[in-house]
Amino acid sequence: MTEFVTITTFNFAHEIIVLKSILDNREIEYFFQNENLISVDPLASFAYGGIHLKVHPNDIEVVKEILNDLNTNLDIV
């Protein structure tokens, strides 16, 4: 997984739940670096720089579109 690159970071584990589902449904390979560590100790997020979403370079544009859609179209009531 050395060829995977960081696309974005999140501060807390609850922020990645919806994104994980979308990436799984679209069959995009990814992993979240520091996810388990920060799930156990949320304050460690600040020490480790957050949860890093890493994807393969071939999927960067698709993932950026997904992130953009989530940022603009996610309406939670």
Results as ranks from 00 to 15, higher is better:
Asn25Ala: 13
Asp24Arg: 06
Thr6Asn: 14
Ile16Leu: 09
Asn71Tyr: 07
His56Phe: 11
Tyr30Leu: 00
Asn71Leu: 08
Leu74Lys: 06
Leu70Arg: 08
Val77Ser: 12
Leu53Ile: 07
Ile16Val: 15
Asn73His: 11
Phe46Tyr: 15
Asn34Lys: 02
Asn68Ala: 12
Ile22Asn: 01
Thr72His: 03
Ala44Gln: 13
Ser45Asp: 07
Asn73Asp: 12
Thr8Met: 13
Tyr48Gly: 02
Thr2Leu: 04
Asn71His: 04
Pro42His: 07
Ile66Asp: 05
Thr6Trp: 10
Asp69Val: 02
Ser45Ala: 15
Ser39Trp: 05
Ala47Arg: 15
Thr9Leu: 06
Ala13Asp: 10
Ile51His: 02
Leu67Ile: 10
Val5Pro: 04
Tyr30Met: 00
Ile7Gln: 14
Ala13Phe: 13
Lys20Thr: 01
Gly49Asn: 09
Val77Glu: 12
Thr6Ile: 14
Ile51Gly: 08
His56Asn: 11
Ile17Gln: 04
Asp59Val: 00
Thr9Cys: 09
Phe12Met: 12
Ser45Asn: 14
Asn11Glu: 14
Asp69Pro: 05
Phe32Thr: 05
Thr9Gly: 07
Leu53Lys: 06
Glu65Cys: 07
Glu15Pro: 07
Phe12Val: 02
Glu61Arg: 14
Ile22Leu: 05
Pro42Ile: 08
Lys64Cys: 04
Thr9Asn: 14
Gly50Ser: 11
Pro42Asn: 06
Glu61Lys: 15
Ile51Ser: 03
Ser45Thr: 15
Asn71Ile: 01
Asn25Glu: 13
Leu19Glu: 05
Asn68Trp: 06
Glu35Gly: 01
Leu19Cys: 02
His52Val: 01
Asn68Ile: 07
Glu29Ser: 08
Phe12Asp: 08
His56Ala: 09
Pro57Ser: 13
Met1Gln: 05
Ser45Lys: 09
Asp69Trp: 09
Glu35Ile: 02
Lys20Pro: 00
Glu27Ala: 07
Glu65Asn: 13
Ser21Val: 09
Val5Cys: 08
Leu70Ser: 05
Gln33Asp: 13
Glu35Ala: 06
Leu53Ala: 06
Arg26Glu: 14
Ser39Ile: 01
His14Leu: 11
Asn11His: 14
Glu15Arg: 01
Leu37Arg: 09
Ile76Thr: 10
Val18Ile: 10
Asp75Phe: 13
Ile22Gly: 09
Thr9Ser: 13
Ile76Gly: 01
Phe10Glu: 01
Ile28Ser: 03
Glu35Tyr: 10
Ile76Lys: 14
Phe31Leu: 03
Asp75Met: 05
Ile17Gly: 01
Val40Thr: 07
Leu74Arg: 10
Asn68Glu: 14
Ala47Phe: 12
Asn71Gly: 15
Ser45His: 13
Gly49Pro: 11
Ile66Tyr: 04
Met1Ser: 14
Ser45Phe: 06
Glu27Trp: 01
Glu15Ile: 05
Val18Glu: 14
Thr2Met: 11
Ile17Met: 03
Ile7Gly: 08
Leu37Gln: 12
Phe12Lys: 12
Arg26Leu: 05
Glu65Ala: 12
Glu29Ala: 06
Asn71Arg: 14
Lys54Asp: 00
